[in-house]
Design a protein around this nucleic acid. Structure first.
Length: 112
DNA sequence: GGTTTGACCCGTT
DNA sequence: CAACGGGCCAAAC
């Protein structure tokens, strides 16, 4: 299972199973892996994540709902457009509506 | 095996 | 409300 795989592998697996129209935070991924403090390491795994894996890294955002740096996706607007196309709701601030689009690993389908 | 780094998070000023 | 600093973890050099 995932526990037998290296940290990066676990991160990739978790990111790969993010449903469309939903987003997740680095801290949430780290916490799901058992290390709530390893949020930075998760980001590191993303940075080293080969695009060949087809990881929806655009669905991974920080705690504030802010997307990754621009050079990563060749433009922040591009990533935002991709997410919107998947059903992710954006606020007027340019941030993601975490209240609705934050993916819950607990299976909780009730945001409110 | 120690040092550096990083797409982070939280508390304090 | 915005800015700054510290901390924590895992991989690469």
């Amino acid at each position: 299972m995932l526990e037998t795989k290296p940290f990066f592998q676990r991160v990739y697996a978790l990111v790969a199973m993010i449903p469309p129209g939903k987003v997740i935070t680095y801290g949430a991924i780290a916490a799901a892996l058992g290390s709530p403090k390893s949020a930075r390491t998760v980001g590191w795994a993303m940075r080293a994540a080969p695009k060949e894996l087809g990881l929806p890294c655009h669905r991974v955002v920080n705690r504030s709902g802010i997307l990754a740096p621009e050079p990563v996706f060749s433009g922040k607007y591009l990533q935002r457009m991709m997410l919107e196309a998947e059903g992710v709701v954006f606020l007027a601030d340019g941030r993601i509506d975490m209240r609705k689009c934050l993916w819950r690993l607990d299976g909780t389908t009730e945001p409110n």
